[in-house]
């Protein structure tokens, strides 16, 4: 910015012709040098106006969000907030318990299979045992009949309702969305889900809720079809962590963060690798540039007229 302003206003003083033959050549190449005072002034004004309008639009865009009638989820410091931070797998394991004991009554998780849990939140034997708890309709067998069998690692988490209509009918017309990718599917991600789960309160005066609706300031519109489901001691964690409401909500968010981003940890490792290799290459390139340019910068061109 300063450089281009300077180029427009005071071209000659920046590139002193006295500093050597190469520089004076460059100086001769600049196109703004011959501009009239008026033209320079106009260009400078245009630049300032464009910058000003950009800044205005930016600040408008930031403040316009205050218009929506919805509370914005604050940014929490998650275990994975920050550079190179992995997901917290102990927390995700508790989050699976929360999903299984609470959310799975209404929400499906259809893009997660039991095999995905292996080596992430559960051992293989545990995941097999979990899968064996469910019944899966399979077939046809050699008689052409369908039959029920215990679940296998390759089976997906069963949905609580057979279809969307059934889900709506059971929830006053509100459809509990699939939770597999909910963290990526909502503005604010895990912050939003956490705030939603813990943010239930009495509706302010003037807000009318229909049958089966609850007030939640973080839900767009305020009236949400899901009742508050997370309370202190809503379940017991197998590892003995005290199940206070915020802990339960945090753990289920950690789990849902993983279901939305299975590759999250790999991405962090990849970031380390990329930044490492990148800085190595950067240093090499810098050296290469200096190396090549040392030749250019040390070259002197001399014109020696022929003597007659």
């Amino acid at each position: 910015m300063a450089a281009s302003l300077g180029r427009i206003c005071r071209t000659t003083s920046l590139l002193k012709p006295s500093s050597g033959p190469i520089y004076s050549q460059v100086n001769n190449f600049t196109t703004t040098k011959e501009w009239s005072k008026g033209r320079k002034l106009l260009t400078a004004c245009l630049g300032v106006t464009a910058g000003g309008i950009g800044a205005l639009l930016f600040s408008l865009d930031r403040s316009v969000r205050a218009i929506e009638i919805v509370a914005h989820a604050p940014h929490y410091h998650w275990p994975w907030t920050g550079l190179f931070q992995s997901l917290d797998h102990a927390s995700m394991r508790r989050g699976w318990e929360v999903y299984k004991n609470v959310c799975s009554a209404c929400h499906s998780l259809e893009y997660v299979a039991y095999r995905h849990l292996v080596g992430v939140t559960h051992t293989e034997a545990e995941a097999k045992a979990l899968a064996a708890e469910i019944e899966v309709r399979d077939g046809p067998d050699d008689q052409g009949n369908y039959f029920m069998r215990p679940g296998k690692l390759s089976d997906h988490i069963p949905s609580p309702y057979p279809n969307e209509e059934a889900a709506r009918a059971a929830n006053n017309g509100a459809y509990p969305p699939d939770l597999s990718y909910i963290v990526n599917a909502r503005h604010g991600g895990e912050d939003y889900v956490f705030s939603l789960l813990t943010g239930y309160c009495d509706p302010p005066a003037g807000i009318v809720l229909r049958e089966g609706q609850n007030f939640n300031p973080y839900f767009p519109g305020g009236a949400i079809g899901m009742a508050q489901v997370i309370y202190d001691e809503v379940l017991e964690f197998e590892d003995g962590t005290p199940p206070v409401a915020s802990q339960v909500a945090k753990d289920v968010c950690a789990f849902l963060m993983w279901t939305s981003n299975h590759e999250y940890d790999d991405r962090q490792v990849l970031a380390i690798k990329t930044i490492g290799i990148g800085s190595l290459l950067c240093a090499l390139l810098f050296y290469l540039k200096r190396f090549k340019f040392s030749h250019v910068k040390n070259t002197k061109l001399a014109f020696i007229p022929k003597k007659k």
């Binding site: 797998h89 102990a90 080596g119």
Partner: peptide
């Protein structure tokens, strides 16, 4: 790089907690 990653995230990865669950199964 993986060693760096594990050092940063000590105690949080599955690898660091799996011993609690592994002894009975498998």
């Amino acid at each position: 790089c993986e060693a760096i990653f594990e050092r940063i995230n000590r105690g949080r990865l599955w690898r660091h907690i799996k011993h609690k669950y592994e002894n009975n199964g498998d």
